[in-house]
Design a protein around this nucleic acid. Sequence first.
DNA 1: CGATCTTGTACTATCGTTTGTACACCCACA
DNA 2: TGTGGGTGTACAAACGATAGTACAAGATCG
Lengths: 351, 351
Amino acid sequence: MRQGVTVPAARVTLRDIARDAGVSVTTASRALHGVTGGARAPSAATAARVRASAARLGYSRDQLATGLRTRRSRLLGMLVPRLTDPVLATIYEGVEAAARDAGYRTVVANTFDDPDEQRARAAVMLDHRVDGLIIGDGSDRGDLLADLDRRGVPFVLVSRRVDGHPAVIGDDVTGGRLVAEHLLERGHERVAVLAGEPYASTGRDRAAGFLERWSAAGRTVPAERVVHGPFDVAGGRWAMQRVLEAGPPPTAVFAVNDFTAIGAMGALRDAGLRVGRDVALVGYNDVSISAELPVPLSTVAAPNDEMGRRAVELLVEILDGGRPDPVLLSPRLRVRASSAFGVPSSPDRYR
Amino acid sequence: MRQGVTVPAARVTLRDIARDAGVSVTTASRALHGVTGGARAPSAATAARVRASAARLGYSRDQLATGLRTRRSRLLGMLVPRLTDPVLATIYEGVEAAARDAGYRTVVANTFDDPDEQRARAAVMLDHRVDGLIIGDGSDRGDLLADLDRRGVPFVLVSRRVDGHPAVIGDDVTGGRLVAEHLLERGHERVAVLAGEPYASTGRDRAAGFLERWSAAGRTVPAERVVHGPFDVAGGRWAMQRVLEAGPPPTAVFAVNDFTAIGAMGALRDAGLRVGRDVALVGYNDVSISAELPVPLSTVAAPNDEMGRRAVELLVEILDGGRPDPVLLSPRLRVRASSAFGVPSSPDRYR
DNA sequence: CGATCTTGTACTATCGTTTGTACACCCACA
DNA sequence: TGTGGGTGTACAAACGATAGTACAAGATCG
C-alpha cells in the first residue's frame, strides 16, 4: 500500500487476461500484441476471446516490463536550453506530435546550455533506456556528442547544427541574408547586430549571413556594433545597451531572436528612440506576439513546428538503420512596421 | 544490432559489477543502492570494492528493471494545456527542478485542454507507471479527476483549482481585486474584462475578483464587455474586437492573461486607440516580455516557478501517505505605463 | 571448549512481458 | 492404419533489478 488512504487499484496483468480467457500468458500476449518470432499466431477465435477479456478487465500493457524485455523503450529524449523559450517549446510540440504518430513517447529536459547539465540529463535519459535523443541545445562545447557517438546512441540535432552530426535546422545563413537585403533596400548604413550566444549556430549563422551580404554591398559593421549575448529579453536589453554606449545609435538593428529584439525595444525606448521611426528593428522566429506588439516587429519566420517533426522522422530513420541526409528548412522574411520605413534621408516608401 | 553502422555499447549490468568485484549480484545491489529489507549491509571493504568496479566499468542502474521490481518508477507526469504557453512552461520548470531535488523525474504532455487528450495522455503516463500526476489543465469538464480518484492515482492540481481536489494555485480572486482597485483609483468607469476560458478557474476567479470589487464600488460592467476566449494572443485579439464592436470603447481593459493582453493591444492599435493614453490595459502573470514592450504592460505577478515547486512537494507528501493542505500563493500588482495614467477627465498623476 | 550470537554473503523467487522451442492435435495421404 | 505436414497452444527462459531467507564463518560467553 503506497498511500495512506486510497489503495491503488491492482494492476491488471497479462496473467489475469490469460486466466480469464482460459489461455496461457504467451497466447494472450500474442493475441493482443501480435506475433514476432517464428511462432504461429493464435486462432481467430482465441484472439477474439483474449481481446474481449482484455477490454472487459481494462488491461493495459506495462511499458516498464515490455521495455525491459524487448530492450526498446519506444521513448525518445529531447534536450533543450529551456522550455520557457517559446521557440524551443514549439519545436518540442512538433517533436511530441510526430513521435506520437510514430508510436514513440517523449521526455524533455532543460539544460540551460550548461555542458554539465547536458551530460547529466542525457545520462538520466539513457538510464531510462530512451531509444534515441533529440538535441535542441547542440554546441561545440563539451564532448557530449562525441561521447554519444562513441557509445552508439542514436541522436539528431535540431534547431542548431554541429559539424559532423545529423541535424534538422532552418537555413539561418539565408535568413540573415534576407534581413540584410531588406535593410539595404531601405537605405540603412549604420546597423547593429545582436548576435546571440556564440556557441549556438543559429545566432552565428544568422549574423554571418547578414554580415556577408552587408559587406558584399560594400558596407561594414564595426566590431563594437556586433554584440553577443543571451537569447532572451534580458539579454537583448543588455546587448542593445552595449551598442548604445559604444557610439551614435544605429538606424537599424538586427536581433537574431524575437525575444532579444523585444529586450532591445526596452533599451531603445529608455534611450528615447522610437522603434519604427527613429530606428528599424528586425527579429527572428516570428513568435506569436511579434505581430501584435504596439509596433509590430519585422522578423524572419522559421518553420519550427515542422523542424520538430522532421527531427523525429530523421531519428526514427536512424533507429531503423538508415543514414538520412540532414534537413535545411527555408525561412521567410516578414516585414512589419518596426522596419517598414526608409531612413530619414531616403524616400519613405511605406506608410 | 539496432543500427546500421554503430553497435550500441553493451549495457553494463549489476551482474558485470558482481563478477568484476567477486561478489553476488545481491551484494552488489546492496553495496551500491543501500539495504532495504531486514537484510544486513555488506562490509565496508566489500562495498568499496563494488563501488570501485561500478565506477571503472561505468555502471548505471536500469530504471526500467528497477521500476518493474519495486513497483515505483520515481516518475511524475504533468499534464499542461500546452507548453508554448510560457506560464505553463515556467510552472513546469519549477516542477522539474523540484522533482529532481526530490529524486523524481518528470514527463510532460500537451492536452490542448481537450478532455479526450487529457484522458489519453494520462493513460499513457499510467502505463509508464508514473507514481503520480500533476495536473496543470484542470477543469470541471470530463471525468478524469474522479476517475483518477477512483483508481487511487495520487495527483495534485496546479495553477487551476477544481473543487474537492488538492491544488497549488495563485490567489486569483485577490489578484483580480487588486486590478479593480488600481483602475478605480485611476478614475475609470467604462471597463472591459477579457475573461479567458470559462472552464479555467484562473480566468474565472480573476474576473470574479475584479467584478466583485468593481460592483462593491457601485459600478457595473455590462455583459457585452465581459468576453470569454482563449488564453493566447489570437484569443485576446478576438475578444478585444468583440468588445469594440459592441459599443463605445472602454477606457480600461483587464485581460486575465498577458498574452491575451498583447492580443488586445493589436486589436486596439488597429482601432486607432493608443494603449497607455487612450485606454488603460492590465494583464496577468508578468511574463518576461511585459516589462520591455514599447508600452510596458501593467500586470499581476504570480509566483509561477514556486507554484510548480510546491505542487511537487504536495504530491510527494501525498505519495508518502500524507494529506497536505492546499496552497494559495499571493499575487502582486505591477503598475506600468499601460495603465499608469488617469482617465482624461481626472488629473494625470503619472508621467 | 562447545553452544550461542553476530555478521557478512549467497541463493532464489519475483516484478510483467516477450520469444524460441516443444508438444499435441488434426487432417490428408499412401 | 501408420506416417508426415500443418496448425494452435503451452512451457520455460530470459530482460535487470530487489528482497526475504538460509547459511557459513568468526566473535563471545559461561
